[in-house]
């Protein structure tokens, strides 16, 4: 007798745990031949709110970790993902990609994570400054993470696209509620499993599956979310997001649809967009040493 395969239940990821949607709803994901691949959680507004609570709770300690430590953890995500390379390739193929494109997508994703892992303890050195003010003050400006970020994953590019938005946000010390692509939700959930096993503290990344139409508005209008990012949203959706975001002056970035496999789709600006700049003034005593010109 042939062995019966054990199938995986795809769940959502909130506060470091994998619950089902509180709503109990699902949508079925069809493969390219029309067969059912999986029942995917159709998350609700309540799930979104729970995810925001988890992200807020995780923000304090994540943002206060040393930049170096964040770098180590982000690099760990790359290591874990590389180790599951074949699983991701299979899953992407299940969702309709051909083998070559699936492999390319996964490899590029690992490299992208490594790219941002390296940024963790470096972007500060590029974006901060010491400011030569005229008075006797030591005046300096540093970047600090914006806070809780809602991310609407690009509908296309099932793994690389969402990683390209997600990783710069957490590399910069933010915490995230990520809405997976409706069309390609499986790799988002499996990525959550990778993140779960990479020393990323619970709540730093939260992943919801469902429809952006239903889940984007509760995030964009949530008063405890500080920023929204997305890429290639429709004009109507992008403008709705902007309007809702204005309630608490969220930072909103709807990047153009892009070819995520290109190097031009990664860069410092993706981190910088989710940073605040803080300037500190400190007095400098001015006594003595005038003739000390050794």
């Amino acid at each position: 007798m042939t062995r019966l395969q054990v199938l995986k239940t795809y769940k959502i990821f909130i506060g470091g745990q994998f619950p089902r949607t509180e709503s109990g709803r699902y949508y079925s994901l069809k493969g390219k031949d029309g067969f059912d691949i999986a029942n995917v959680c159709l998350s609700s507004r309540k799930d979104a709110r729970n995810a925001v609570v988890a992200a807020r709770k995780a923000f304090g300690s994540w943002s206060e970790r040393s930049a170096f430590n964040r770098g180590q953890i982000v690099y760990r995500i790359a290591e874990m993902l590389e180790g599951r390379r074949s699983q991701f390739i299979e899953e992407l193929q299940l969702m309709g990609l051909n083998a070559a494109n699936a492999a390319k997508e996964v490899d590029a994703t690992v490299d992208r994570i490594v790219f941002y892992a390296g940024w963790c303890d470096k972007y500060q050195q590029i974006v901060s400054s010491v400011n030569p003010v005229a008075s006797s003050h030591f005046n300096f400006s540093v970047a600090e993470p914006t806070g809780v970020v809602g991310i609407v994953a690009p509908e296309e590019s099932p793994l690389l696209g969402l990683v390209s938005l997600l990783i710069p946000a957490i590399a910069g010390g933010n915490t995230v509620v990520l809405l997976a692509s409706e069309k390609y939700p499986l790799s988002a959930v499996t990525l959550a499993e990778v993140i779960h096993s990479s020393d990323v503290p619970g709540g730093v990344v939260n992943v919801l599956t469902g429809t952006a139409g239903e889940l984007m508005p509760p995030l964009a209008s949530h008063l405890d979310v500080n920023a929204m990012t997305s890429a290639g949203l429709s004009k109507d959706m992008a403008s709705a997001m902007h309007v809702q975001a204005a309630d608490n002056v969220k930072r909103v970035f709807n990047y153009p649809a892009m070819d995520w496999s290109k190097a031009s789709s990664q860069g410092l600006s993706m981190i910088e967009d989710l940073q605040e700049i803080k300037t500190t003034w400190h007095p400098i005593e001015n006594i003595g040493g005038a003739t000390s010109s050794y």
Binding site: F68, Q72, F115, G118, W119, K122
Partner: peptide
């Protein structure tokens, strides 16, 4: 670890 990240930046 630190300088590794600079190589491509």
């Amino acid at each position: 670890f630190y300088y590794a990240g600079w190589a491509d930046k």
